[in-house]
Amino acid sequence: MREISVELIAERVAQLCQEANFDLPPDVLDALKKAKDREESIQGKRILGEICENAGIAEEERVPLCQDTGMVLVFVEIGQEVHVTGGPLTEAINTGVARGYMDGYLRKSVVSDPLNRRNTGDNTPAVIYYDVVPGETFRITVMPKGFGSENCTALGMLKPADGLDGVKRFVVDAVDKAGPNPCPPVTVGVGIGGTADRALLLAKRALLRDLGSSHLDPQVAALERELLDKVNNLGYGPGGLGGRVTALALHIETYPTHIAGLPVAVCINCHAARHKIWEWRGQEDE
């Protein structure tokens, strides 16, 4: 049994929130640079150039990549041999988010109630998912999610008879409906199976995979490639003003489902596919 204190967790969450908003992950920057090379539209090339320049400025000057510094999604994996000490874990995570958003001059974009819409002033609460896993590690992924892209989320409760063709149509249609709004070139996360809520979570988690990595199941990997092609043939391109690169990557995750259903969910990330991971393995980190 290993012990981790809530103070350390809060401190690291604060740091992750800032780093995620200032530093574009290297795989994303790399994908953007490659996209710039292959984009045929002159305007699209220029926009990709601006996006890469923006990433350099954000990293160097410690200014957020985007003014929408997001609502914070936190994915926590707790090894079952780990004991969290010093107070409630959820509270510690929210303390870290509040501190990170204050200290980093990040925008507070969360309202306390979806109907009365009063700003909470510190960007809390975060949306937190906990998974208990075997072992002694404690891993936190922070994903500040902007709502330009979040508002483009789609869920389809398809019929089994809709089959693979129905799934393809639904995914391409969701990206088509989003059009220029989610700040293309986007990353598309697709969840197929489970229940409605599980499909959405799969789609969201699919956005966290290394950009352009393939699914281990060759059939799913082939579907990823086919759908990425179809999405790029929509022609939206960088900024949605026309071009070849509408999406940098399309990732699919699947889960068993019910005999009566075929849930499909599509989550979209803007070109700033922000996230930051911290993994704790013991004392060396304290």
Binding site: N54, Q67, G148, G239
Partner: peptide
């Protein structure tokens, strides 16, 4: 249309910014 997701780059073009109404709305 301005380029979405380039808030850091655009900040270089902004010389002054001040709240002139509804300060309670924050951002």
């Amino acid at each position: 249309a301005a380029t979405g997701g380039t808030g850091a780059l655009i900040s270089h073009c902004i010389k002054e910014m001040q709240v002139v109404a509804y300060p309670d709305l924050g951002p």
